[in-house]
Design a protein around this nucleic acid. Structure first.
Lengths: 252, 252
DNA sequence: AGCTCCTAAAGTGCATGCAATCTTGCACGC
DNA sequence: GCGTGCAAGATTGCATGCACTTTAGGAGCT
């Protein structure tokens, strides 16, 4: 079971082909900068977004280190960074596990994200440029393509739309908080999502962009509210479901 | 200059007399739990809130470790946690320094905090109990006392009012984000504050509580908006002031 | 005297090693 | 045959040690 981690990490290697640093080559930057951690981090995040890694799953630090041919201390740094972002939970003497948010926590995360996204939208409506709108529109097209082709990365793309929105607040602080919440929401969806009407979600993305273009923050927020109602509506947040999706209950 | 850190940390020992764990005794919990890090962390935060530690100041990790009689690795963990919260900045091969936010970053932090506090208020107005209001009112009395007595911890108390508000959103996720922003704002004020009309700020705290009691979120938000206008108004966020308060420009 | 270079001390960044703990597999007993 | 207890292997948590970088101080030169 534990080798699945390594396997999936390898799978990720072949999957996300467009990496930013092809000239990275050997992992020689022994001292000084440490982009290696960032690479591992990004890959793990991508694996989560595409739901190759599931909540509750163990992240063995020696296997993680071996998979990327880095010393164990490097792997641990990545895991601890993920811990600080609440993506990963440490159990004493047992190691790192992908966080398995409780139903209550899930409600709180979504509630917080709602408000932050609303705030973001009001800023975006003040600050978005024509170029920003083009980027958003193009991204939505990519989303639609991915969904119609049933591609695995469709979910990741849908999440990245919100990353783009966060970026367009032109407020890096708000952006970082929003991105953190978006990622935690992915985790939540991995646990509690029962049905996904994803296509209708991208159409809401489109409506949001329309409202932004009209600089109508109230309209944008209204659509976003519906958007969240749909997303939360697709979750089964009853408490007793929390352990229903326990790892041991997976379709072995 | 570097021994001031140890000195101030010791000063903190004598200063914050009411610590939660008197029975802690020896730091023997060699393995397992690690409350030691939490103690060090809390103390550093308190020192920042009371402005004994200033932005730009070096946090020497061996001296920090010696001051609390813990191995260096423990001290480093604390510093890295502070780094993740953007309280501390690491410079390669030079160590940890208290973050010195730029004027632009300061604006972004306050902007984000504004919106999050507004969101929090709307939740508080729905959820605050009578007991919550009592706690807030009592805290305001403590603030007034501290200010009238010119006590050093007055600033910390004023900040903690917002911590209490965050807590009363009954949303731990939102609470944590808010508290993080409050702390960064203290750092910002340490750098950029030019005049502090603190007493009028506590009266605004009082008005906010009144609005909460009336369950009038809009009114509460309006007061909070004025509150922030006053706080930001007491800052000099011109870019050229950024290096005016350089550490080396401190008295002496 | 002032400036520059050089050497020594201090301090960080990180990998590794060790002890404690957990887990897995097996043997023994029921 | 099934459950329990034990021992070996695996794995984590953490302190320490080492190599490298920065910094401070002084000697020598101009």
């Amino acid at each position: 079971m534990s080798l699945t981690l390594k396997a999936e990490l390898h799978e990720a290697d072949t999957m996300s082909r467009n990496e930013s640093s092809p000239s990275e080559g050997s992992i020689s930057p022994r001292r000084g900068k440490f982009p290696v951690e960032d690479i591992i981090y990004d890959r793990i995040i991508a694996l989560i977004m595409e739901k190759h890694l599931r909540p509750g799953q163990r992240l063995n630090e020696v296997k993680l280190a071996a998979a990327y041919d880095v010393p164990r201390s490097r792997a641990r740094r990545v895991l601890e960074r993920l811990k600080d972002e609440e993506i990963v939970t440490f159990e004493l003497n047992k190691g790192a596990f992908l966080s398995r948010p409780s139903a209550e926590e899930a409600r709180h995360v979504f509630e917080t994200r709602r408000h932050l996204e609303y705030a973001g939208l009001s800023l975006i409506c003040e600050r978005a440029t024509k170029g920003d709108l083009d980027v958003l529109r193009e991204h939505i097209l990519a989303e639609q393509r991915a969904f119609s082709e049933q591609r695995r990365d469709a979910n990741r793309l849908a999440g990245e739309f919100h990353d783009l929105l966060a970026q367009m607040t032109k407020n890096p602080i708000l952006e970082k908080l929003l991105i953190g919440l978006v990622r935690r929401c992915v985790l939540i969806q991995s646990v509690y999502e029962v049905e996904t009407n994803s296509l209708c979600l991208t159409s809401e993305h489109s409506q949001i962009v329309d409202a932004i273009e009209a600089k109508d923050a109230q309209a944008a927020i209204k659509v976003m509210a519906q958007h969240f109602d749909h997303i939360v509506g697709s979750l089964d947040l009853r408490e007793d479901r929390e352990r229903a999706t326990d790892v041991y209950a997976l379709p072995n």
